[in-house]
Amino acid sequence: MFGRNRSQWHSRLVRIAGVERRPIGGRMAIMRVTVLGTGAMGAGMARSMLREDIEVTVWNRTVERSEPLADDGAMVALDPTAAVADADVVVAMLFDTAATLDVMATVLPAMKEGAVFVQSATVGVEGASRTASLAAEQGVAFLDCPVLGTKAPAEQGALVMLASGDPTLRERVQPAFDAMGAKTIWVGAEPGLGSKLKLVCNAWIGVLTAGVGQSLALAKGLGLDQQLMLDALDGAAAGSPYLQAKGKAIIESSYAPQFSVDGVRKDTGLIRDAIAASGLSTVLVDGVRAAFDAASEAGHGDDDLAAVYFGF
């Protein structure tokens, strides 16, 4: 199952109640946190907490994706209910609303009294409401806390935590939030406000990235050296580190995913729903979504969002 010699694993791991539990050498854990979903973001968040001596258990539908975290000191759970049983805080970083609700329905009844469930995926306005309602039905303390940042900030503990929910829960989760993020913005006491702010911020990121792609595609179409655009805007009021980073990625054809094209497409659909529900014009978000759709159709769905360039 682990793709390694079993004796090598059992020299370092002890199985307890369905969890691959690694001894932590006598160190005192600040708290016990479970991370559900160990993709690029969840794995980085788990490692950031481990560096702060938080005891971390991880679970992923495909166990091979969580296995490497055992080498960093995490406990690898073989099923989600075992993963959450002893946790003080459970952080869910899953792909979308459907995946999050499915896992929540399984794990919420298994969580111990007083534990806090933290929903960190981008699920949109309706998704945030549905996840909060499900937690309330099960009597589990809940915080809506999507994050700003991609794979690298997750690994560095430099995310921005966009938290909303019961203010009395803040002290319980703050050590974990401090480990995962450079800062926490407490958006309000109403669950779902964090998810609303996430949509606002991701709308801006989508527009910025599409703008970089369009301008570099135009430079190529006009027969210009694409680097000249970055040089012209470097240090200017209209320039930014983000322009330089994504522009360099496009010029160097470097598309290792920090945040994928298809991930942006999913989020842009949620953003469009929120814009339409607010009675605002969708003309800009429709254009951005069309560019990312075209890039995905060109075979770049799993590439970094800078590959929106191919949509032009």
Rank of each mutant, 00 (worst) to 15 (best):
A232V: 15
E252V: 00
M180K: 04
T131S: 15
V288I: 15
A128R: 07
E55Y: 06
A99V: 06
A154T: 03
G26Y: 08
L78A: 03
W59M: 05
V147A: 07
T57K: 06
K183D: 09
R4T: 10
Q258N: 11
D88K: 02
R32G: 02
W59N: 06
L208V: 14
R61H: 10
T57I: 13
F2I: 02
P153W: 02
M161L: 11
M229H: 02
L101N: 08
F142A: 08
F117Q: 09
M111Y: 06
W186D: 05
A238K: 05
G18N: 02
V288M: 06
L222D: 00
L208T: 11
T57M: 08
C145T: 12
A163K: 09
M1K: 07
V19Y: 10
R51A: 13
W204N: 09
T122P: 06
A256W: 07
N5L: 13
F142T: 06
G3S: 07
L270V: 00
M31A: 12
L143N: 10
E126L: 15
L230T: 05
L233Q: 08
A105R: 15
R170E: 12
A17R: 14
S120I: 03
H10K: 14
V288N: 01
R172C: 04
M28H: 08
E297P: 04
A203K: 04
A83Y: 06
D234F: 08
L305D: 14
A217M: 01
G39K: 01
V56W: 01
W204R: 05
D166E: 12
V261S: 04
K248G: 15
G194E: 05
G18D: 10
D303V: 11
T150P: 02
I54F: 00
R15V: 14
Q119T: 08
L78W: 13
H300M: 01
A306L: 12
P109Q: 11
G124A: 09
D303K: 12
F292D: 05
I54V: 07
A17V: 09
V14Q: 14
L108H: 11
F312Q: 10
G114A: 07
V118M: 13
V89W: 03
L143C: 06
T106P: 05
G311S: 09
S11E: 15
S7I: 14
A163P: 02
A43I: 00
V283W: 06
D102Y: 04
G44E: 00
M45I: 13
A132K: 11
G311I: 04
I250G: 01
A82Y: 13
G25R: 13
G181S: 05
A40P: 04
D293S: 10
L199R: 12
G192C: 12
G124I: 11
D53S: 14
G42H: 00
P146W: 15
G235Q: 06
D273A: 11
I30Y: 10
L94T: 12
V147T: 10
L224Y: 05
